[in-house]
Design a protein around this nucleic acid. Structure first.
Length: 636
RNA sequence: GCCGAUGUAGCUCAAAGGUAGAGCAAUCGCCUUGUAAGUGAUAGGUUAUGGGUUCGAUUCCCAUCAUCGGCUCCA
């Protein structure tokens, strides 16, 4: 396999450039890019690998492989590791697998489990291993790697030449490091389930053959399995694509194009509210807003380096009067041009340009996913420019600012990753050192749990990434605070110091939500569609019991609307129960029932979407309640 | 882009080599309702698009597009 040839010479401006750490690591270590340095927290990973669950899943993978090979004797096996929540095994088979095949394989697995046969570990020489796996080309390739002392059977790098081991169980032998359970009988036959089949490249490299991967899940007890399946169901209910339709938040139209989001009124209201908050916070914290165009001339993208290193993600140029213009994949060059439109003094710094800039990136057709992965999206982008003296304080500021905003959206579990200088990097080493020190000091001051990813930074600068945990405990990377030592050089940015001489400013890119679209998708799933009151497109619906109450309902609505409460009257002639049901399904925070009693007392009877009954309440009191929850950004 | 699956009414799904049906939603009535579905009627579809096979295709075949599950890539 060819190592990826990636030139780490000064390439374009950093921020969202495609050169990720995997590739860089793959390059520098001259190993394939597979599975190196995955961002699993080391402690968690070690705990998992020593757990019974890990051995169980590893063992289940072997049992599955045996069942598959019995069905397809000519099949070739690749690798089959445990993964989060389960395991997989990759096969090269004569035909595509069907769901029925999976059922059969699962049935056969249970039989093998019942054989209760021991997992026997054996150390073998490379020659012996080659003999055992003579019909298994993938295994032979792995043996070669082991022999050369480069990678183990999972493609992970190894420090020294490892001992080659095989594991036998029942009728199956596998090249495997282990460990396993004592015997197949330790797997609970009712706590294993095959989930689905998917394609996967051999060793994760798209130039290699496509294999068939069977995903399975395995647990210590059927109860655990059941709970896992329940969790999957819950996640499905929260799927932003499903909720996006049900709550009429957004759509994607074939007519418009894949990966291009249409924000419906409900979704647009949520976006508007989120952005209004974002804007207020920025204005209150020393940011200046800028607006920049959607296209720019080729030369700009040449200077920035995009045309050399990001072209494959950019749309084809538009030609106007013999000039080529490109749709922007990033905002930074425009912000830099604004900076450069005048001579800047140290007295002007720090400068903070913020823009919700809509960018377009070509994404390969198979990767689009709801709001999470699209071709046109808006970054809540900002660029900070400051002097070296100001830099530590500026980092402190931007980290605090970021955390404050994330917490306002209900993300209270936040972790940070600090990525430091890779081997090949641009920028003076002192600048790197100072920047890294500032980032780390800020993390400590913010008392944020963080991990250091040594050498994991991009070539153009160190960075902090912030990850949040959503209501289901899933992690999402949202924010990034990213130094850029590259673009100031490329664009020859300067400021004038006290001594009258030009100096190079520090430049920091940062995005808090990242992509507004993706952030919205995460918000939908985090709240399961039940947005907090301050973000709900409709905060309350008034439900008149009979037609004679509609007029009163309208009066109440008008009064609440004048207090900026988003409220509707459900004046359909349906029964109250039906209206409540509809409001519940729309996840409207408050339902205000009005009938004869309420009319008589100038009151409303309040029900929360949780089902909680707050009882009859004066209209003014309800107004205060809602406004208070809006001000608190309370969930609920 | 790659592997596999899928594409039928606004939504969720049936059916079938002889031009398709249900529930919900919608529309129009009746009912005037007290905390998650009152009731009747009506309307709604070139079965994703383009080719091919066939007396006949929406059904079988091919291509394209899109979606879904993954891989690769990524905000």
């Amino acid at each position: 396999m060819e190592p990826r040839e990636i030139t780490l010479a000064p390439v374009g401006e950093g921020f969202l450039f495609n050169l990720n750490r995997k590739k860089v690591a793959g390059f520098t270590d001259n190993l394939n890019a597979l599975l190196i340095l995955r961002r699993i927290k080391m402690s968690e990973k070690e705990n998992y690998e020593e757990s019974k669950l890990f051995r169980l899943r590893h063992s289940a993978a072997h049992v599955m492989a045996q069942a598959v090979l019995e069905k397809f004797p000519e099949g070739k096996v690749a690798i089959g590791p445990p993964i989060e929540d389960g395991f997989y095994y990759d096969f090269d088979l004569p035909r595509p697998l069907t769901p029925e095949d999976l059922d059969e394989i699962e049935v056969r697995m249970r039989e093998i489990i019942k054989n209760n046969s021991e997992f026997v570990r054996e150390e073998v020489s490379a020659e012996e291993a080659r003999e055992i796996f003579e019909d298994q080309p993938y295994k032979l390739e792995l043996i070669e790697g082991l022999e050369a002392g480069e990678v183990d059977e999972h493609g992970d790098p190894v420090d020294e030449k490892p001992v080659i081991t095989i594991y036998k169980s029942d009728e199956f032998v596998d090249l495997c490091r282990g460990p396993h359970l004592e015997n197949t009988g330790k797997i609970h036959p009712k706590a294993v389930k095959l989930m689905n089949v998917a394609g996967a490249y051999w060793r994760g490299d798209e130039h290699n053959p496509m294999l068939q991967r069977i995903y399975g899940t395995a647990w210590l007890s059927p109860k655990d399995l059941k709970q896992y399946l329940w969790r999957l169901e819950e996640a499905k209910k929260r799927d932003h694509r499903k909720l996006g339709r049900e709550l009429d938040l957004y759509s994607v139209s074939d007519e418009v194009g894949s990966g291009l989001v249409l924000w419906h009124p409900n979704g647009a209201m949520i976006r508007f509210l989120a952005e209004r908050f974002w804007e207020d916070e920025h204005l209150n914290h020393g940011y200046d807003f800028v607006y920049t165009p959607h296209i720019g001339k080729a030369q700009l993208w040449k200077t920035s380096g995009h045309l050399d290193f990001y072209a494959e993600n950019m749309y084809a140029p538009i030609e106007i009067e013999d000039q080529q213009y490109y749709l922007k994949p990033m905002n930074c060059p425009f912000h830099i041009e604004i900076y450069k439109s005048d001579i800047r003094s140290y007295r002007d710094l720090p400068m903070r340009y913020a823009e919700k800039g809509t960018v377009y990136r070509y994404e390969r057709s198979g990767v689009m996913h709801g709001l999470m992965r699209v071709r046109g999206f808006t970054q809540d982008d900002a660029h900070h420019f400051c002097t070296p003296r100001q830099m530590p304080e500026e980092i402190d500021f931007v980290l605090d600012f970021s955390l404050n905003i994330l917490r306002s959206f209900g993300f209270n579990e936040i972790e940070a990753y600090l990525s430091t200088r890779p081997e090949k990097a641009v920028g003076e080493p002192e600048r790197w050192r100072d920047a890294e020190a500032a980032l780390e000091a800020s993390l400590k001051r913010a008392e944020l749990p963080y991990e250091v990813d040594e050498g994991g930074g991009a070539f153009y600068g160190p960075k902090i990434d912030l990850k949040i945990k959503d209501a289901l405990g899933r992690e999402w990377q949202l924010s990034t605070i990213q130094f850029d030592f590259n673009n100031p050089e490329r664009f020859d940015m300067t400021y004038i110091e006290e001594d009258g001489q030009p100096y190079r400013p520090y430049m920091v890119h940062r995005a808090l939500m990242g992509s507004v679209e993706r952030f919205f998708g995460i918000l939908i799933e985090h709240y399961g569609g039940a947005f907090p009151v301050w973000l709900s497109p409709v905060q309350a619906v008034i439900i008149p019991i009979a037609d004679r109450h509609v007029e009163y309902a309208e009066n109440v609505a008008a009064e609440l609307r004048s207090a900026d409460i988003r409220i509707e009257v459900d004046d359909r002639s349906d029964r109250m129960n039906a209206k409540i049901r509809d409001a519940e399904k729309q996840k409207i925070p408050f339902m205000l029932v009005v009938g004869d009693r309420e009319m008589a007392e100038n009151a409303v009877d309040i029900r929360r979407r949780s089902g909680e009954r707050l009882g009859a309440m004066a209209v003014d009191m309800f107004k205060d309640l809602v406004l208070q929850e809006v001000a608190d950004k309370a969930a609920g």
